[in-house]
């Protein structure tokens, strides 16, 4: 058995998971801040919609993505016209799938982290003349970063293990879109037991260490 059978999917998985986590981080933190800042009538709906990808079956998400990003989909056509890019059967598709699945983990932890910031500290900054940007960058974010970082770790772990939505939009092409979790499935189905065992060990170890680290971040420090 050659090393590339493990390393090729491992490197691809890391690339996909890192990019997906960065995307989920930016989108999740922004959405959580905007939704949490003001009380508006549709807030419960916004909260539920942003958390939805966490509870929907990945195949349902994959279906939505095919409809939106397929060759006939609105966003799919836009991507081809503007960037000459398609998400179907490409690693970029795997990134978007993982990003959508990981998004709620960042959103919910960031939302809780922002909520836990003492409103009087925000008020104090406002009476001292803080602008919206400095309010966020100098007061809210420094007080909420632990929770957000823990959410990002969970998102990374989730993105690494993404299977269903990725399979539907990016397929299972070795060396191109075959991530670790897809490679495990492939190896088991083809009876390559030794490869499957190694892949499973790698995924388990990585996920375990991420969970332990994010656990220490979420535990209150004081």
């Amino acid at each position: 058995m050659t090393a590339s059978l493990v390393f090729t999917p491992l490197l691809l998985t890391l690339k996909v998971a890192v990019l997906a986590t960065l995307g989920a981080l930016v989108l999740g933190v922004t959405t959580a801040y905007l939704v949490g800042r003001e009380r508006f009538p549709a807030r419960p709906l916004a909260d539920a919609l942003a958390t939805l990808p966490m509870v929907l079956p990945p195949t349902v998400l994959g279906y939505y993505m095919l409809v939106l990003f397929g060759r006939q989909g609105i966003l799919g056509r836009l991507l081809i016209d503007v960037f000459g890019l398609t998400l179907l059967f490409t690693w970029q598709g795997a990134v978007v799938a993982s990003c959508i699945v990981a998004f709620p983990l960042v959103f919910t932890t960031a939302r809780a982290a922002f909520d836990s910031v003492d409103p009087n500290l925000v008020n104090a900054a406002r009476t001292l003349g803080a602008t919206r940007l400095s309010l966020f960058c100098r007061v809210v974010l420094p007080l909420a970063w632990r929770g957000i970082l823990a959410g990002a770790m969970l998102a990374f772990a989730r993105a690494m293990g993404e299977f269903g939505a990725t399979l539907m939009i990016a397929g299972n092409i070795p060396g191109k879109t075959q991530t670790l979790s897809l490679a495990v499935y492939d190896a088991v189905m083809a009876g390559r037991d030794e490869q499957a065992a190694i892949l499973v060990a790698v995924v388990s170890a990585a996920s375990l260490s991420i969970l332990m680290f994010s656990g220490t971040l979420l535990r209150p420090a004081r």
Binding site: A125, L128, G129, A130, T131, L133, S134, C137, R138
Partner: peptide
């Protein structure tokens, strides 16, 4: 000091 320059990066 925040009161003297409440902007970002301040």
């Amino acid at each position: 000091g925040f009161a003297l320059n409440p902007g970002w990066p301040g």
